[in-house]
Simulated scan of single mutants.
Amino acid sequence: MIKIPQSTKGLIFDLDGTVANTMQNHFTSWRHAILPHGIDFNQELFLSLTGMPRHATIAKLNEMFGTSMNLQEVGDAKATHYKSLAHTTQEIEVVTDVIKRYHTILPMSIGTGSTKAGAKYTLETIGYSQFFDIVITADDIEKPKPHPETFLKCADLMGIKPKDCIVFEDGELGMIAAREVGMAVIDVNDYFKQEFVI
């Protein structure tokens, strides 16, 4: 069970790979979209980019591999493939137990690199929409993780100082973002081991 320090005043949750077990589906869909362009989109590469919005991920891959993938076309291919798998998403219980335990006790929000529509669908699929009035997505910010804007917006809307928040994250970029503004981090990987199947 994940323990929350008594001094904590607000909880912020990443969504994909933290609250919802979507990462295998994202990995499969990225491989489907990227492999035709000659990049071996493997687990290590995927994990290094986790938390970035779709178009930012493709732009970063273009920069890394010298490719000129079309952001819209490749992004749409990834999104379409993901939609065909999204209904299979399940909750990550070690984290959703915390959500249920602290609902109405501490303010809670979602801070995700997903789109607004994607986040809404994921939360509905796992049955957790009713727990979150505040959901900050890639559509609500200018600068994605590892910039802390996502989490700062969450804290601001909850009315909590950053130093009094705990962020639940599975992605390195999100952990960097949270720590940069003095937020405590709970690394979900310490409680839930993700194994990817190619």
Rank of each mutant, 00 (worst) to 15 (best):
D97K: 12
S84E: 14
I58V: 13
P162W: 12
G182K: 03
S84A: 14
L11R: 04
G38M: 04
H32I: 01
A56P: 05
G159H: 08
A79V: 00
G17H: 03
R54V: 15
G174Q: 02
K161D: 13
T115R: 03
T28Y: 12
K120D: 15
A56F: 13
F65E: 13
H147N: 14
D164F: 07
D164E: 15
A59P: 02
R54D: 15
I12Q: 07
G51F: 06
N189W: 00
L15Q: 09
V135N: 04
T80R: 09
S114N: 12
D164P: 02
N62C: 05
V98I: 12
H103E: 11
L15I: 01
F13R: 00
I92R: 00
D139A: 06
K120I: 03
E73Y: 08
V19P: 09
P36M: 04
V188C: 07
L71H: 08
T115E: 11
Q6V: 06
I160R: 04
A138F: 01
Q43M: 10
I136F: 08
S48A: 08
G113L: 03
D14C: 08
L61G: 07
M175E: 10
I141D: 09
M175T: 03
V135W: 09
K120G: 09
T22H: 11
Q24P: 11
D187T: 05
K60T: 14
P107V: 01
H81F: 14
L157D: 10
P144A: 10
I99T: 11
H37F: 10
T22P: 01
K60I: 03
T112G: 07
N21G: 08
T18G: 07
H26K: 00
L49P: 02
I186L: 08
T112N: 11
G127Y: 05
A117W: 07
I58S: 10
N189A: 10
T122S: 15
F168H: 10
A56E: 15
G159N: 06
G127T: 00
L35W: 12
V135R: 00
N21F: 11
E73W: 03
M158L: 13
I12L: 13
T67M: 01
I136L: 03
M108Y: 01
N189E: 11
K161I: 00
V181S: 11
A79R: 05
I105E: 13
L157P: 00
E73I: 05
